[in-house]
Design a binder for these strands. Sequence first.
DNA 1: AGAGTATGTAAATAAATTTCACAAACGCGA
DNA 2: TCGCGTTTGTGAAATTTATTTACATACTCT
Lengths: 205, 205
Amino acid sequence: MNADKIPDIIIGRLPIYLRALQRMADSGLRTISSQELGEMVGVSAAQIRKDISQFGEFGKQGTGYSIAYLLEKLREILKVDRIWNVALVGAGDMGHALARYQGFVNRGFKVVMVFDNDQNKIGQHIGDFIIEDTANMIERIKSANIKIAMLTVPAPAAQHIADDLVEAGVKAILNYAPISLNVPKSVKVQYIDPSIHLQRMTFYV
Amino acid sequence: MNADKIPDIIIGRLPIYLRALQRMADSGLRTISSQELGEMVGVSAAQIRKDISQFGEFGKQGTGYSIAYLLEKLREILKVDRIWNVALVGAGDMGHALARYQGFVNRGFKVVMVFDNDQNKIGQHIGDFIIEDTANMIERIKSANIKIAMLTVPAPAAQHIADDLVEAGVKAILNYAPISLNVPKSVKVQYIDPSIHLQRMTFYV
DNA sequence: AGAGTATGTAAATAAATTTCACAAACGCGA
DNA sequence: TCGCGTTTGTGAAATTTATTTACATACTCT
C-alpha cells in the first residue's frame, strides 16, 4: 500500500464500494469490473480503478476484480477486518434505534455500552444493554479501551459529552446531535443530521 | 442572486451555516462576523464570505452579518423559508425515531405520512400518524403533492420503493437503506448509513 | 472627524480531484 | 499456440475547489 497521504474523499468512497461488493458477494457473484461496480454506486469506472489503485493492484486485466479478494482488501484498508466496540451516548429514540440496529456487526461494529444522564433511564434495558450513568462514562470507556462512540444527546449537551469522550480516549465520534463539535485534530467526527441532509436537497427541488 | 451554477459543495455548506446561526439566534445574539462563524463551524472566514457572496451582499462592513437577516436569506436560498411535507416509508425502529423526531419542523420539514408494507403494522399509530399501506403510496403522495421522502426500509426493498417514489413525483429522497439507489438525474438522493460513516473514520484511528 | 473593524471582490496561486487515453495483461476459443 | 475481445493500472491533461493576499469601501464608536 502506498501509505503516503490518501485523500479523505477517496477514503470516503471506499465504504460505498465495500457495501456494494458485500451485497454482490451475498448474491453469489464472483468477479466484477470497474465498469459494473461504477454503475452500481454511481461513480465512473476510471475513478473506481484510480481509487483502488492507491492501495495496490487487486484486479486482473481482462477479468476485473475478484469480489472476495477485493472485499478482503477493502476491509483491511478500512480496518474493518475486525469488530470495533462502540459506546452509545444518549438513550432517546435515536439511541434506541441504534442500540437495536442489526446492521452493524457484519460491517465491523458492535455497540457494547449505552449511557444516559437521565436518572429515570439509568438501569433500564435497551436490547441487551443496561443504560449506564454518564457520570461513569469516562472511566468505563477508558477501561474498556473503546475508541469509537455514537452521540445521540440533545445539542446543548453534545460538546460537553464530546469533551469527555476525547478525554476517555475516543478517536472517532459519530455525531447525531445537530451541532458542530470542536475536537482535537486527532479525533475524527462524522455528522448525521437528517435536517441538514434534507436542506442539501431542497435547493434543487 | 447569481443563479448561474453554484457548486454543490457550497450548497452543502449552507445548511451548516444555517444551523449554527439558528443556535446563535436562539441564544440571543444579534450579529456575527465571518471570522466567528467560521470558527464555530470549522471553515475559514474567507470561505464563509465567498460562499455567502455567491448569493448577494448580506453583510455590513465593520459590523459583520445580522444573524436574523442572514438566517432569512439562507432560508430563502435553501428554500426552507417554508415547511415541506415529507413522506416516511418504512416503520421500523428508524422510521419510528424519525416519525417522532422533534428536530424537523423548525428546520423546514414535517413528516405527514408513514407507509409500511407489513400488514401487522398498517393501521397502527406512530406519534400522530396512522401507518398506511405502501400499496397506496404512489397515489397518496401524488395527490398530496409531496416532493420529499425518507426511506427506512430494508435494503432489498429500497430500489423498488425508490422507483415508486420517483413515479409519484418525489424529487428528493433521504435514504437510510444501506444501498446505492438508481434514480433519474432530476431526483436528488442523500444517504445516511451509520456503518458507512463509521467506516470512514476507522481508517484514521 | 478619525480610528478601528469587517465585508465583498479580484487576482493569483495552489491543491485536489476527475477525466482521458492507451499500453499491457489476461481469458477464451479454435 | 495464436488472435481477439476485455479490462486493468496509470501517466497526462483538464477541471474543480480551496487558499492566500490585498484593498477599496462602508460601517460603528468615541
